[in-house]
Amino acid sequence: MEQANADILITARALTKSYGATDVLHGVDLDVRRSEVLCIIGPSGSGKSTLLRCLNFLETYQGGEVRIGGALLGYRLDSAGNRRPDSAANIARLRSGIAMVFQQFNLWPHMSVLQNVMQPLVLVQRKPPGEAEAIATSALAKVGLGGKLSSYPAQLSGGQQQRVGIARALATDPAVILFDEPTSSLDPELVGEVLTVIRQLAAEGMTMVVVTHEMGFAAQVADRVAFMDHGRIVEEGPPAVLFRDPHSDRLRQFLQTWNERSRLFRDEPAALGALS
């Protein structure tokens, strides 16, 4: 077996995935290192979210491999060396150190905020309810929702719901948190509060993989940015290099479109003023 580097928490090698005849991932290589913030950017449909969901086997992959702490995720090799689907218990065990935050929050609507955060601790980590409640309460306080313990998700704003989602991930004491476009379904004025919480976690050294359309956030917070297009990682590197000096035409084009759009939005008030 490959020697596991203690500082590499998740590795993906030559990862391929297709839905029927549609190829979504074409051989992706990626390492997630301890305490880094890795942002994955790229156009819609480039395979960013699919890649993220393969990292905890919410999506099955067909070719290549994902390893968590050196152990193959999702499959086991039988005596003849063929790949077989692994047992649900093994998958759950490998996944247990990886928490996820979803674009649509995916809170459980019939549970209070506190119960949402406690549930994985009680059901999966088998913590006594008292201890689980203490951990959940402090995780919620950390994301600024200490006063909403008994509220239900539908009573909260999108930004608050997403912060509950982050607290739910945080409470499990994960080695890595995967964020799947955490701000994409939020009203623009609620994006900031969620990014602030993620930024705070980054400052504390939490390992995070963030699929995002927020270029400004990626530029400021990421240690490393990977740009995906058509199921491949086209380019990766520190944001200062990647954003300032893109090597590939595709990334240059992507950044240019994004810059033009943000300039348009920035200039809009002036343009409107000129009209009146």
Binding site: L58, R93, I98, A99, Q104, N106, W108, V124
Partner: peptide, 11 residues
């Protein structure tokens, strides 16, 4: 998505 969340937390 609610079931994805449950699965991702190891339910």
């Amino acid at each position: 998505g609610q079931l994805d969340a449950a699965r991702s937390f190891g339910f």
